[in-house]
Structures are given as structure tokens and as C-alpha cells.
């Protein structure tokens, strides 16, 4: 597989959240604003690249039977590093992501890539795969959070769009920021993906 293809497969075709349905907890919990979504996406990408690289380096030395605990310890080490880094340099983001930074450890995307890809492939291609998957995760988070932020507060990236266009008195639906909005947005996006897939299939079948 070419490097480019390896990188971009995680963006849409094998998007970890929208297609593989992995890592659902953070993608629903922190997507109340685009800023949080991007922060979470980048934090998880950093952990993913670090852990995939190390695991791929060590794949010959890790005994088959205890590989999962070893993977988890490696991942947890990177999560701790990211956690401390965020606390030191971006305390506001660290506060708003809160509990979900340590919970990157149990994000199934990271363990899933370690198990399915990094433990079987070369260091370089594991890094590329991790980068692609991380970007795909970030894309999904940005997509979900932009819907929620727009519907919930009427703004994007914290800019109140309606006020900027001169429309006064817009009231966002607070429910989209609260938990139900997360589930609803996710359901509608997945439904749209499925609709698109079926439409493509029907087109190919009709030819």
C-alpha cells in the first residue's frame, strides 16, 4: 500500500468513529464546542502516534500472551505525558476536557490500532497509520462538535454567527449541548453515512 493511501484511509473510508464506531465515549462527551473537539482529537492523535511507534519498535520483544497489558502500560505512559503537558501549557483546555484526558487510555481506537496494525507492521507505516487514524478521529470530532455548537449556541469556534450577520435574538437549543444532543447528532450523522453508502450501492447495482 502506498504511503499516501495508508495515510488517507483513516480520514473517511475507514474513519475510526464514523465507520468503525470506535472511541464513542470521548466523541460524544467532549464535542460541546469545536475547540474541545480539536483539543481532544489532537491529544488522542499524539498518544496514538507515540504508542503505535513504540509498540511497533518493540513488537519482536513483546510476548504474545501478555501483549494487551503491555500495550495498555505503553499507552498509559503517553497519556500521562500528554495529561501533564496540557495541565502545564493549556490549563483551560485541560480543565474543560477533564476526566476524558486520562480516559484516552481506554479509547478503543488506540488499543485497536496497536493490536490490529502496529504489532504487525513496520515502524514507519505504523506511524503513518496512526497519524491518519488520529486525523480521522479529529475530523469526526470536528464534524460532530460543529453541528452541536452551531445548533446549541448559534456560534462556530466561539464566534456568534447570527450576531455577526446582524440578526439579533437568536436563541440556541441548549439541549444540543446537553447529553441528548450528542446522541442525536451522532445518530443523524451515522444515518447520513449509511444513506450515502446505500445510494452509492444502488447506483453501482443499476449500472
Amino acid at each position: 500500500m502506498s504511503v499516501m493511501k495508508n495515510l488517507t484511509k483513516g480520514f473517511f473510508k475507514e474513519n475510526p468513529v464514523l465507520v468503525l464506531a470506535l472511541g464513542l465515549c470521548p466523541s460524544l462527551a467532549v464535542t460541546t464546542s469545536i475547540e474541545n473537539g480539536i483539543g481532544m482529537g489532537l491529544a488522542a492523535t499524539a498518544v496514538l502516534i507515540g504508542s503505535s511507534t513504540i509498540i511497533s519498535f518493540l513488537k519482536k520483544f513483546i510476548p504474545e500472551s501478555i501483549r494487551i497489558p503491555i500495550f495498555i502500560v505503553i499507552i498509559a505512559t503517553f497519556v500521562t505525558m500528554i495529561d501533564l503537558t496540557l495541565q502545564a501549557f493549556i490549563p483551560a483546555l485541560s480543565k474543560s476536557l477533564g476526566l476524558f484526558i486520562p480516559l484516552i487510555v481506554v479509547n478503543c481506537i488506540i488499543l485497536g490500532r496497536a493490536e490490529a496494525y502496529a504489532s504487525k507492521n513496520s515502524v514507519f507505516s505504523s506511524m503513518i497509520d496512526a497519524l491518519g487514524m488520529g486525523i480521522g478521529f479529529t475530523i469526526a470530532l470536528v464534524l460532530i462538535s460543529s453541528v452541536r455548537e452551531f445548533a446549541g449556541t448559534g456560534s462556530l469556534f466561539g464566534y456568534p454567527l447570527f450576531q455577526l450577520m446582524g440578526i439579533e435574538g437568536f436563541q440556541g437549543s441548549i439541549m444540543m449541548i446537553l447529553p441528548p444532543g450528542g446522541f442525536l447528532t451522532m445518530g443523524l450523522i451515522l444515518g447520513f453515512m449509511q444513506w450515502n453508502k446505500l445510494r452509492k450501492k444502488a447506483k453501482e447495482g443499476g449500472r
Binding site: P180, F183, L184, M186, G187, L190, G191, Q194, L198
Partner: peptide, 16 residues
Amino acid sequence: SLKGLPIAFITSALIA
């Protein structure tokens, strides 16, 4: 197009 996961999420939205 709603069968499977999408309707599961919409259902959980209603429960939530």
C-alpha cells in the same frame, strides 16, 4: 438508512 447503529443512537438520545 437508519437501521442498526443510527437508530440506536437516536433511541439513546430520547432516553437521555
